[in-house]
């Protein structure tokens, strides 16, 4: 426990000094706020674009607040995941490659605390960034588009957060397996993308897949939304995060210990 605190403090300090605590939340906030603002001002933006034929009129049905929030989540599914993967991908592989971890593991330290601190700091970064961005999106949606039912927003947000946790945990696992950073980014992004696409193509086989979490959270936001398989998917996702953690601990141990 003592060592976990030390490792965790070090991870937090590192994320602070490398400005991750600044730019990741900022990007998430920007992504979140952009969607309602863009939607609200879309007619004006189109008008001022200037290359429209004369006399053309565009009528855009004003979307509901819930729809705008669902679109925001769509933004996080692409750029949000990319930022997340890029910001945590070298957390384990970087220390292994540079050789710092040699000095760390020659000391009487526990591999579980080491990995747990990585996981905990990744989860804090993701949670804080998403909470800030999603909160911003919610605030602006209510201000300029229309009210949304709070229960649905919170539920959708929690399920989406679970999906981001999954993506982060997956990235850390790959980081413990592979050395080159581009390889880590490619594998984790590819796997996350495949999972979420698979639940679009084969909904029958992927009811409980973590990849269906983004859809589930969008469903919560639909009027009278009821998401199928939500609890199952959430539980399976948490189980996956735990398995990824255990696998990474095993992997780190295998590389260094007398095991």
């Amino acid at each position: 426990m003592m060592q976990f605190k030390l490792f965790f403090r070090k991870e937090m300090l590192e994320m602070g000094r490398s400005y991750k605590w600044l730019w990741v939340p900022l990007v998430f906030l920007m992504l979140g706020v952009m969607q309602p603002v863009m939607t609200r001002f879309m007619p004006e933006i189109l008008k001022s674009a200037g290359n429209m034929p004369k006399g053309m009129t565009i009528t855009i049905a004003p979307p509901s607040g819930a729809e705008v929030l669902a679109q925001t989540l769509g933004q996080y599914s692409s750029i949000g995941i990319l930022i997340l993967v890029l910001s945590v991908m070298t957390m384990i592989s970087g220390e292994r490659q540079s050789g710092v971890s040699q000095m760390i593991f020659a000391k009487p330290v526990s591999y579980v605390s080491y990995a747990a601190a990585k996981w905990a700091s990744m989860l804090s970064l993701v949670t804080a960034s998403f909470a800030l961005g999603y909160g911003g999106a919610w605030y602006y949606t209510v201000q300029i588009i229309g009210a949304v039912e709070a229960g649905a927003v919170v539920k959708a947000g929690l399920f989406y957060l679970l999906w981001l946790w999954f993506a982060g945990a997956l990235t850390l696992l790959v980081s413990s397996l592979l050395d080159p950073a581009p390889g880590i980014a490619f594998v984790s992004l590819g796997a996350a993308l495949l999972l979420s696409m698979a639940s679009g193509w084969l909904p029958r086989y992927t009811v409980y897949s973590p990849g269906s979490l983004p859809q589930i959270s969008a469903q919560w936001l639909e009027p009278a939304g009821e998401a199928k398989g939500a609890v199952g998917a959430a539980l399976l996702c948490l189980a996956c995060i735990f398995i990824f953690f255990a696998a990474a601990v095993y992997r780190i141990k295998l590389r260094y210990s007398k095991g």
């Binding site: 710092v100 040699q102 020659a106 009487p108």
Partner: peptide, 20 residues
């Protein structure tokens, strides 16, 4: 059982956290 508390080790090319 675990020799690590009794050993001090310096690798060939020590690398540290440059931000510390």
């Amino acid at each position: 059982a675990d020799p690590r508390p009794y050993i001090g080790y310096l690798p060939q090319m020590p690398v540290f956290y440059p931000w510390m």
